[in-house]
Design a protein around this nucleic acid. Structure first.
Lengths: 202, 202
DNA sequence: TCTTTTTCATATCATTTCAATAGGAATTAA
DNA sequence: TTAATTCCTATTGAAATGATATGAAAAAGA
């Protein structure tokens, strides 16, 4: 049930571009992304091309060029990205909603494995299609702020140009912080769900 | 997020062995499994060896030999099987509960991607570790009976030996049904969940 | 105009994984 | 003794994975 390195790199870079957009940074170069995320730069270049031709990002060529998100981060679902890079979310072709493929089993209708895997695919898609890049960016930046870690991409890099003022996030997207008794904090799930909904339990 | 062919074959065969156990069939040979499921026989042989050395099945060698489940089907979780054949359920190593691996990202604690993938891993494991082989077998045989399709493995194959009587299933495991208003019942999903709990919604 | 820095485009490569295939040894029943 | 089966190990071919390599095209600044 693996996500490929390529998929991981794509997501990490897009999340970074989302953060950059949030802090008012216009463009981010491949070199900077690669350095920050420890991704081989040339490999990342290729990935960025794919993301570009799929319409997730746009680019500025030449000196002081770079990449930025093509659409608002809340308009890009994680599922879309994963599907582009790694193909269908479904564990087996016969339960894929976006690219069904007949399987080799003799009777698909009465196949218990298929029913099971349909649940798995729905569970995966239920998460990846429900969450947007903006959700992941929000959760990340919120956690960093909470821990006093400065956000990346807060200034232009090689270029002394005046930076846009960061969009004032109205009270950190109204983080309804809610205290949880210490004994309930024992088994934090640490997922996005628990981050967005502090009372979420599995 | 793929399940490998090998994993699929392993699961299909184990489900078959579960059905065989249910209908009182003592042993099933690789050739029969391979034929029924359209799996290359020699490939399946290898898989059966792995399943055997992992303790899921036992074998009888020689003429009229074959395989059977080593433990009751409700004692074997699907997750175990998948982990054996395909490795950890987690999409990336840094969220695996059974075989964690540090990832290359600079700050694991504030990594939004990691939080997201943790949810995905929990969703997958929540299904695959919760369901047993018996659940899948039950759902399969129930659906076949409902549609008037004869269960496979109902008689010995080449051998005229007396077959065991099938275990009488006591009223299909008392499903506590709970009504959900019709407008909340979004779309029937056809998964195992919806099969076991007809009012299940996503 | 020339240089530097960037994206863009292709080709290539090394390794691993996947999905088998092959050949035969050991075991068992008749 | 023979046939049918599991067991064991090696090999193979194709594809995917995760990169490198090389250089063209574009943009900005000197």
């Amino acid at each position: 049930m693996k996500l490929s390195k390529k998929g991981e790199y794509a997501l990490r870079s897009l999340i970074d571009l989302g953060i950059a957009a949030d802090v008012g940074r216009e463009l981010v170069q491949v070199a900077e992304l690669a350095e920050k995320e420890l991704i081989p730069a040339k490999f990342l270049e290729q990935i960025m091309q794919e993301l570009k031709s799929a319409g997730f990002i746009t680019s500025q060529r030449g000196k002081f060029g770079g990449y930025r998100l093509a659409r608002p981060a809340d308009d890009i679902s994680i599922g879309e990205i994963v599907r582009l890079i790694d193909g269908p979310l479904a564990p087996i072709g016969c339960v894929s909603q976006t690219s069904y493929e007949k399987c080799s089993c003799p009777d698909e209708v009465h196949c218990g494995l298929r029913m099971l895997m349909l649940d798995v695919r729905n569970a995966i898609a239920g998460i990846l299609d429900r969450y947007s890049l903006a959700d992941v960016v929000d959760v990340t930046t919120r956690k960093m702020k909470r821990d006093g870690i400065p956000l990346p991409f807060s200034h232009e890099r090689t270029h002394g140009a005046a930076r846009r003022s960061a969009k004032e996030q109205p009270a950190a997207a109204a983080t309804k912080r809610q205290q949880i008794p210490a004994d309930r904090r024992l088994k934090p799930v640490e997922g996005i769900l628990s981050e967005l909904f502090p009372d979420y339990t599995i």
